[in-house]
Design a protein around this nucleic acid. Structure first.
Lengths: 144, 144
DNA sequence: GTGTATGCAAACTGTTTGCATGGAC
DNA sequence: GTCCATGCAAACAGTTTGCATACAC
């Protein structure tokens, strides 16, 4: 089986898989949390210094396209991504403000018809929850 | 009374008020919806062509600081702003996807303790609702 | 008179794209 | 053999900043 759930090659769906892309996928798996493209580029460079920025951006775009990565928010001016295997089902993300850990959460938005301000018909929503994960809570540090 | 709720001078709080800033405030009031800094710059230029981009950015920052303007989302790569007089009370925004009209809405997020994924302690959330306002609904156009 | 807002242009940051080359399939 | 992915650098968009000048207070 060349496409187990841990096979980097599976992440790109029908796209081609190069050694660089394998490194990028592997780096994402080691990051284990929300990251910017710059974070990922840095992590990837630690493994192979010859991988260019554009390659990382293009790989991230391909991974997002295939559904293996998801946009989970933003930090400063940069987009935050995270590995996500929630598939097509409606969900949102919780991001730990201390370690960046990301978990999938059920949709916490309840919109009562009476609350629709001025009769807006709500078509979609964007939600990101921020919090502190159990591990960071246990370590006793306050919010940064 | 030099600071009625319609007095442009009041918008800047303790900041100084120049003719340019008055024009900018006035332009915001005419835009009446979500806008980018570029939108605002264009509207302002229609009134006084000599107002520079940096001035608009700085004025927007000052207006956001004073609470007169609020960041309500983003469109493409640009930040969306809108006039907001909800004061300090917790609220969110609904943006009409057709005309850009913005309304304040009560917080639609309900987080049951049992739903906190893996025991995250939720500290804050970002929510933006998108929809179609009554006027646009009435005009019968489908979503763009 | 003092200090802040302006205007211009240059600088910056995150991201995308063009093009020639190497490699996946 | 074909076509896609790479790498480099240049291009880009949105936004910020430096500096001398004008003006609000």
């Amino acid at each position: 089986m060349s496409a187990s759930h841990n096979d980097p090659d599976a992440a790109f769906g029908s796209g081609r898989v190069s050694p660089q892309r394998r490194e990028i996928v592997s780096a994402v798996e080691n990051l284990a949390g929300a990251f910017t493209v710059e974070d990922l580029g840095r992590a990837t460079h630690a493994r192979d210094a010859r991988i260019g920025t554009a390659t990382v951006y293009r790989a991230v775009a391909a991974l997002e396209e295939s559904g293996w990565l998801e946009r989970v928010g933003e930090r400063d001016g940069s987009t935050l991504f995270a590995r996500c295997d929630a598939g097509g089902h409606h969900h949102h993300h919780v991001v730990c403000e201390q370690c960046g850990r990301v978990e999938v959460t059920e949709c916490p938005v309840v919109i009562a018809a009476a609350e629709n301000p001025d009769g807006f018909r709500i078509t979609r929503h964007e939600v990101t929850l921020y919090g502190v994960c159990p591990a960071c809570s246990a370590s006793g540090k306050g919010a940064v």
